[in-house]
C-alpha cells in the first residue's frame, strides 16, 4: 500500500524564520498518524502545509512536494485541496451567527448544494456520525452558543465530515476539552479511520499511544523518528525521541 499523502523534502517558513527543514514521510490511507513533538517544533505548520492552509498567513511560504494520491497539491487549486483534505482546529471555531444546522450545512452550501431535502438528510447523518444528533435534537435551528466545548468540537468535526473529505487533519483537537469530552473524540477518531485518513497533532503522549497507528516525532523543524506507534513508543531508535516520550526533556 503506497501512502495517501507523500511528503517529499518539505520546507516551510514565516518571513525569514524557517519552521520546517526538509521533512519527508509517507502517510498511510485509513490509518491514524500522530504528530508529536515539543512546542514550536513545527507540528501545526506541518499539517497546515498538507492542505495549503500555511500559505494564507502573510509572509508564509513553502518549498518541496506534498503528493495527495500521487498528485502534487501545490500544483492543484488550493480550494480543491482544502475540500479534499478537511481540518479540525484546536479551538472549536463554530460560527456564532449561524444555527447548528447552518454550521453543518455551510460547507455543503459552499459546494453548491441547494436542495433542502438533501441538506437535511446529510446534516442529520453527519450529526449522528459524531453522536450529536440526539443531544441537539429539536434545536437544530438554534444558534450553537448553548453547547459545551466538547459538543462544539464534535459539531466542528461533523461540519468537516459533511463535505466528505478524504483526509482529516486535526490540530490538537482535544487540548481545550475535559477528559470525558476528549475520550469521546478519541472514540470517534477510531470509528472515523474506517473511512478517512487521519493526521492528528497532539501534546498528549497517552492519547497518541492510544489512538494512532503511526507516530512521527518532530523536533526543531526536523523529522527525528517515524514508524508504527508501538515501535516508536516501546522501542524508540533515537535518544531524543526516548527522552521526549518519557518526559525527561524536550
Amino acid at each position: 500500500m503506497t501512502g495517501k499523502i507523500v511528503v517529499d523534502e518539505l520546507f516551510a517558513w514565516y518571513d525569514d524564520r524557517e519552521v520546517l527543514k526538509g521533512i519527508s514521510l509517507e502517510i498511510k490511507a485509513n490509518r491514524v498518524t500522530a504528530i508529536i513533538g515539543p512546542s514550536g517544533c513545527g507540528k501545526s505548520t506541518f499539517i497546515r502545509c498538507l492542505n495549503r492552509m500555511h500559505e494564507i498567513v502573510p509572509g508564509a511560504g513553502t518549498a518541496g512536494k506534498v503528493y495527495l494520491d500521487g498528485r502534487d497539491v501545490y500544483a492543484l487549486n488550493p480550494i480543491e485541496v482544502r475540500r479534499r483534505v478537511g481540518m479540525i482546529f484546536q479551538t472549536p471555531n463554530v460560527f456564532p451567527a449561524m444555527s447548528i444546522f447552518q454550521n453543518v450545512a455551510v460547507g455543503l452550501a459552499l459546494n453548491g448544494w441547494r436542495r433542502r431535502q438533501e441538506l437535511h438528510s446529510t446534516v442529520e447523518k453527519t450529526l449522528s456520525q459524531v453522536g450529536l444528533l440526539e443531544e441537539v435534537a429539536g434545536r437544530l435551528d438554534q444558534p450553537a452558543t448553548g453547547l459545551s466545548s466538547g459538543q462544539l468540537q464534535r459539531l466542528c468535526i461533523a461540519r468537516t465530515l459533511a463535505v466528505e473529505p478524504e483526509v482529516l487533519l486535526m490540530d490538537e483537537p482535544c487540548s481545550a476539552l475535559d477528559p470525558i469530552a476528549s475520550f469521546r473524540i478519541e472514540e470517534l477518531i477510531r470509528e472515523l479511520k474506517q473511512k478517512y485518513t487521519i493526521v492528528i497533532v497532539t501534546h498528549n503522549m497517552q492519547q497518541a499511544a492510544r489512538i494512532s497507528d503511526y507516530t512521527a516525532f518532530l523536533a526543531q523543524g526536523e523529522l527525528i523518528e517515524y514508524g508504527s506507534t508501538p515501535a516508536v513508543f516501546i522501542n524508540p531508535k533515537d535518544r531524543r525521541t526516548e527522552s521526549y516520550i518519557t518526559g525527561r526533556s524536550a
Binding site: I56, R83, F89, F95
Partner: peptide, 29 residues
C-alpha cells in the same frame, strides 16, 4: 473577528469573498 473564524471557512475551500460574506460580516454585524 478571531482568525479561527476565517480559517474554519478557508479550510472548507471557501473563496476569500465567501469568507467575508459568511464568516466575517455576520460575526461583526
Amino acid at each position: 473577528v478571531p482568525a479561527g473564524q476565517r480559517e474554519a471557512l478557508l479550510a472548507f475551500g471557501a473563496t476569500p469573498w465567501e469568507v467575508v460574506r459568511l464568516a466575517v460580516l455576520p460575526y461583526a454585524r
